[in-house]
Computed example of a mutant assay.
Amino acid sequence: MKSSFVCKSLAASLGLMLAFQYSNAQFGNILKKASDKLEQKANDAIDKGVSGTKSATTADTGTISTGKKRISMNSVFDFKAGDSVLYASNFDKFKAGAMPPTWKTNGSGQLMKSGEVAGTWLEMQNGASYKLNQNYKLPETFTVEFDLLTSCDKITDISPVAFGFAENNSVASFNEGSIAVTELEFYNNNKVTSFANPVDKYISTEYDLSKYANDKVHVSIAIDHAQMKVYLDKTKILDSKMFKDDVRKYFFVSAPLNAENDAKVYISNVVIAK
């Protein structure tokens, strides 16, 4: 009888122990699952934060792609030379070493040839301005074309070359009577300035001039009453009202005031047409 009671007690104790162990195991599983979920949420939050940081950094540096190709535009060379030629320099007709008789200056100049560049070129003296001997008023609508050539160690050795129009045909001084001027600021390497004091106009344009070291640039000018357009090769660098109405216009070009390391500037192929 006593033995039976002991057996029953042991069985009950063993059942309680097994139930307790099972409960602990289940509770442990619940805790582990809860811990795993919290860890996953923490990792997700970290990943999201890192992703947001990368996007912000990319946006700050401007490297986010819009997914669209950059828009490009094609410029149009709308210059059209006049049909009727009023003047053509034709320097080849004149003696080398002399100042061309169709031009005048406050300084000096001489016609020269090169074995590397075709044609005959007028070497301009530093500080000198040049105008045509023909003393007549240009029409209201006309075009001017010419070539400028440089010889230098580097383009920044050359101070500005100026060209444009004056209200008189005198060469008493440098840039005498100038009213509308464009300056190629070679010494600045990439700057062209146009100004017209009578109409209070000043325009500065960025343009790479370094490529014209020991090379030529073709200049085209179109005048339509008060409007003046200027092109370097086929790039327009000026299109603006530069004159008062009915003002007289005389073409001029001026050499640099200074040039380092014996740099030189030449002009040729001048054509004025209407």
Rank of each mutant, 00 (worst) to 15 (best):
N24D: 09
N269Y: 00
K236V: 05
F5P: 03
F142G: 01
N43C: 08
V171D: 06
E260S: 15
D239E: 06
S72H: 07
A273C: 02
L38Q: 10
A255V: 00
N269G: 03
V144C: 05
L122V: 00
G15D: 11
S89Q: 00
S178G: 15
K234P: 07
S35L: 12
T57V: 14
L122W: 01
T120H: 04
K80G: 06
S114V: 03
A222D: 07
V271Y: 01
T63F: 10
S254K: 03
E123A: 11
N214W: 05
D246P: 03
D245A: 10
E140V: 08
A226F: 06
D262Q: 11
S84H: 14
S254T: 05
L238D: 04
S65M: 08
F79V: 02
S108H: 02
S51F: 12
K32C: 10
I155D: 05
L149S: 07
E140H: 13
I30G: 03
K93P: 01
D36T: 09
M1H: 14
F252G: 00
I30S: 10
K229R: 07
K236M: 13
V6E: 15
N126H: 04
F91L: 03
M17C: 12
A25R: 12
K137A: 14
N126D: 05
N261T: 06
K69I: 09
S240L: 05
V271A: 04
T156P: 01
V253Q: 02
L31F: 03
S151F: 08
L148P: 02
D224C: 03
K249R: 15
E183N: 15
T58Q: 07
S240A: 15
D215Q: 13
A162L: 04
N214A: 05
E183S: 15
K229P: 01
I155L: 11
A19F: 00
P139V: 04
C152Y: 02
F77A: 04
I155H: 03
T141K: 14
R248W: 08
K93D: 02
P101A: 05
